[in-house]
Structure formats: C-alpha cells, structure tokens
Simulated scan of single mutants.
Amino acid sequence: MVPLLWLMLVPFAGWAGLRLAGWEPKFVWSQLVSFTPYAAAASVLPLVVALLIRNGPLVVAALLVTGSFAVAVLPRAVPGGNAEAGGPVLRVLAVNLLHSSVPPEDLVAVVERDRPDVLHLLEFTSLMRKRVGELGLGRLLPYEVVLPGEDSEGAAIYARYPLRPSDTRIAAPSFAKSPRHLPALLTLPGGREVELVAVHACAPSEGWRTACWASSIRALPPAGGRLRVLAGDFNATLDHAVLRDLIATGYRDAADVTGKGLSMTWPYYQQPRLFPKVAIDHVLADGRIAVRGFQTLRMPRTDHRATLTELALP
C-alpha cells in the first residue's frame, strides 16, 4: 500500500513543481497545465489515504504537494482588493462566436437584455455582421470597429460611445488562418479615453501552433500609460506562465478579483456534461480600474461561455 501511494504522489508532485516553477515544456504540457484545478482536487486523495494509514513521511510529502496546489489555485476563488475608482462605469461583454455559429437573434437579444456598453465579438464573419446589422445591433451599440475575416480570423468591437481604431500596434501571427487581436479607442462622455482590445490568441495545440499561441499572448500590450481593457479568448488559463507574465505588467483578471477565477468557460458545445472545462476566456483590466462584477453567460451553438464584466474607471 505505502509504495503504491508514493507512486501515486510522484505525478502530482511533478505537476505541482512544474506549475510553481513556471516552466512550460512545449506540446502536451501547454494543454495539460490548463487542468491544474482538477489535479489540485485529485491530489487530496493520497493525502487522505496517508492520514488514514498514519504514515508520517507520506503525510508530510502529500501535504507539501497539496499545499503547493492550494497556493496556486485557491486565491482565485477568494475576492481580492479593488482599486479606488469612482469614475464612469463600463460594462463589457465578450463572446467567441465559434465561426459565427451563434444565432444572430440570440446575440442581439443578449445585448438588449444585459445592456453592455462594449461588445467584443470573436470569430466574427461578414455574414454575421450583415445579420446583426439587420436585427438592430447598430441601434443598441451604434459605434463599431471591425477586423475583417472569415471563420476564426474576424473580430469586432461594438460600443455605446464613440469608437475609433487605436494606434497601438499588435504583431499578428505569421501563420495563415490565425486569429488576430483588435485594438480600439473608446471615448466616454466627458472626453475620457480607454483602450479596448478584443483578444483572440492562437490555441496551444501541438507543433507550430504552440509557437503561435505563446507569441500571440506576448504580443498583447503591457499595462501602463493609457487605461486599457483586454477581453476575449486568451486560449490560456491562470496556470499558464505566459498569461501570468502579462498580468504582472499591471493588469488584474476580473474573474480572479471577484473570487470567480474558477468559473470555467470552455468547451461546452457538443461535449459530455462531465467533460472537464477550463477557464480560457478572460477580462484583464488595468490595475487602476475597479472590477465591480464578473459573470459568465451561456450562449447557444458556441463552445465558449461569454463573459460580462462591470468596471469602474478611476
């Protein structure tokens, strides 16, 4: 029994060690590390058995492993401190449309119901643009900046307030058929400006796509200077070092701040109910911005949950 428990503990120890060290080997690990919350939960089992059989060395080792996971995972389930901000409130809705598979009428209905000030749309096709226009999206959010593209390449930002393309340059992946980020500048009543970036990083697949994934996240602008909000599909979780490095420049993850960092967002469509989900859709706000609320929303015919965030500017 004891040798078997030691063998069970080894992979958990290796997982926790890699996660805390921040070293991310290519290929399988860039995908596997997304499931760290599940590994953390499973690591409790060897600890419980070690306690039951009263094996001291094994208890200590299991406690170290489970504790390492807890340090990495539990803080995102606890609300954190917020910035002091009494400025304009901004509601940001971000949706990955899965090649624009979401019925346009459902998308417009969500905008009517939840009344966002800003709408980020990813995998946004020209046909979807035409259909939501016919259904009155422009009446609800009259300003738009669109990045033309089909399938996964297109993106758009719609807004209640004046919006224009940003001068921020974000390097596009050099691979064909890769998603791209879309920056825009929003001018609020009174003249305040905030930069918005509709984020769509490459997926951390095997082979050349791994390089596309990491570089597409590193290409995002660091915090500092003008106020900035990044929202969309990062294809990365808080267990990926490349995303934590971006946050460390001065952003705060809205789900993490509100204690909802374990709200999973993908994959939901056409997946078994018990298939493990991961949190790859994020809203990163400049640290000077207060996060008033965060929630995920179910959207039909897409594998992503939408995110709806309420922010208060300084």
Rank of each mutant, 00 (worst) to 15 (best):
P267L: 12
G259Y: 10
V242W: 10
R226T: 06
S215G: 14
G259M: 06
D245V: 13
G261N: 04
G232R: 00
W213E: 03
R244W: 07
T237R: 06
G207F: 12
V283C: 06
R218S: 12
A219C: 11
A211I: 06
Y251E: 03
L238Q: 15
G224T: 05
M264G: 15
A236K: 07
A203G: 11
G259Q: 03
D245S: 13
I280L: 02
L230K: 02
H282R: 01
V229P: 01
P204Q: 09
R252W: 02
R244E: 10
V242R: 09
I217G: 07
I247S: 08
H282D: 01
Q271N: 10
M264K: 12
L238A: 12
P221W: 03
A223L: 03
V283L: 08
D281I: 06
P267M: 11
K260H: 15
I280H: 02
S205E: 14
I217H: 01
E206L: 13
V278S: 04
P272M: 06
T210V: 15
Y269W: 14
H240K: 12
N235P: 05
R209Y: 10
M264C: 13
G259D: 08
L243I: 09
V278K: 03
A231C: 04
T265D: 07
D286N: 07
R273P: 13
D233I: 01
A203P: 13
V229H: 02
R228T: 00
R218A: 11
R209H: 11
T249N: 06
L230C: 05
R228N: 00
V278T: 04
R228K: 07
G287R: 06
K277H: 10
Y251P: 02
L284I: 01
L238D: 15
A248F: 11
A241T: 13
L243F: 11
D281R: 04
L274P: 14
P221M: 02
H282T: 01
A214M: 10
Y269L: 14
Y268M: 10
Q270Y: 15
D239R: 08
L262M: 08
P272N: 06
W213P: 02
P276C: 05
D281V: 02
L243S: 07
L227E: 04
G287D: 03
N235I: 05
G287H: 08
P222A: 05
A255I: 05
H240A: 09
L274N: 14
D233L: 03
S263N: 12
R252D: 00
F234C: 04
E206P: 13
P272A: 09
L238P: 11
L262G: 03
W266N: 06
I217Q: 01
Q271Y: 10
G287Q: 04
Q270C: 12
R218G: 14
H282F: 00
G225M: 03
K277F: 10
K260N: 14
W213I: 03
A219M: 09
A279D: 06
S205D: 15
